[in-house]
């Protein structure tokens, strides 16, 4: 008997429970309802608020603008269209880009920035939004793998989470190093000096 035959014989003892197939079929029927709920939750967390000491000048009458920009998306530099809508002291943005594999992606976000001196809230500027878009990003792929992307770098982190579902990685671009603490599918913290929990 070859090693392969021995191995297959040993592992042929593994079988799913008797009601496994029925369970999957039942869950498949229920799944559409669950997916709709998840999409609503994802939309609710898409809004991000950036509070920081920016001194960038801001044009108060920015209104609605559209820009053709270049962003790094999943390790590839790609053309994108950015729409910014300003309402009161909040700026919302939408970025639409086409990945090189042909899929179209859209990213949404926005929020306010607090002015350094007056501490008054104001909408994010175009530059601040671009800065935010160029920060490291974490993606969970359909195949269950997890990745960190930063400019042209991509790092698989699927196996780097500890038992508590926390992963710490550093990414670097030029002089800047980001220390990222990533909570499995629950967001991440990053800092340019140290890991923050």
């Amino acid at each position: 008997m070859t090693n392969k035959e021995k191995y297959k014989q040993a592992f042929s003892v593994l079988h799913t429970s008797e009601d496994f197939t029925m369970e999957v079929e039942k869950m498949a029927k229920l799944n559409n309802v669950k997916r709709n709920k998840m999409l609503t939750a994802a939309a609710a967390i898409a809004l991000c608020v950036i509070v920081g000491g920016s001194t960038t000048a801001y044009a108060a009458n920015l209104g609605n603008i559209q820009r053709q920009i270049q962003i790094w998306f999943k390790g590839d530099q790609t053309d994108a269209i950015m729409n910014i809508k300003t309402t009161g002291n909040t700026a919302e943005y939408e970025v639409i880009c086409e990945h090189e594999n042909g899929t179209v992606h859209s990213m949404h976000g926005g929020g306010v920035a607090l002015d350094d001196k007056s501490a008054e809230a104001r909408p994010l500027t175009e530059e601040e939004i671009m800065e935010h878009l160029n920060e490291p990003n974490v993606f969970y792929e359909d195949d269950g793998s997890a990745w960190v992307y930063f400019y042209d770098q991509k790092m698989e982190i699927t196996d780097k989470f500890n038992d508590d579902g926390v992963c710490r990685v550093q990414v670097q671009h030029g002089d800047i190093t980001y220390y990222m603490t990533i909570y499995y599918q629950q967001g991440w913290h990053m800092n340019t000096d140290k890991y923050v929990d």
């Binding site: 090693n3 021995k6 191995y7 297959k8 014989q9 040993a10 592992f11 042929s12 003892v13 196996d159």
Partner: peptide, 29 residues
């Protein structure tokens, strides 16, 4: 298990660290 050898092999694989176990499984199974 069909044989005692099969049980030993199963136990041995389970005792290995995951990164070796999965490669062995994909290759042999």
């Amino acid at each position: 298990f069909e044989t005692l050898e099969s049980e030993h092999l199963f136990e041995a694989v389970m005792a290995m660290p995951q990164k070796y176990r999965i490669v062995i499984h994909l290759f042999y199974y």
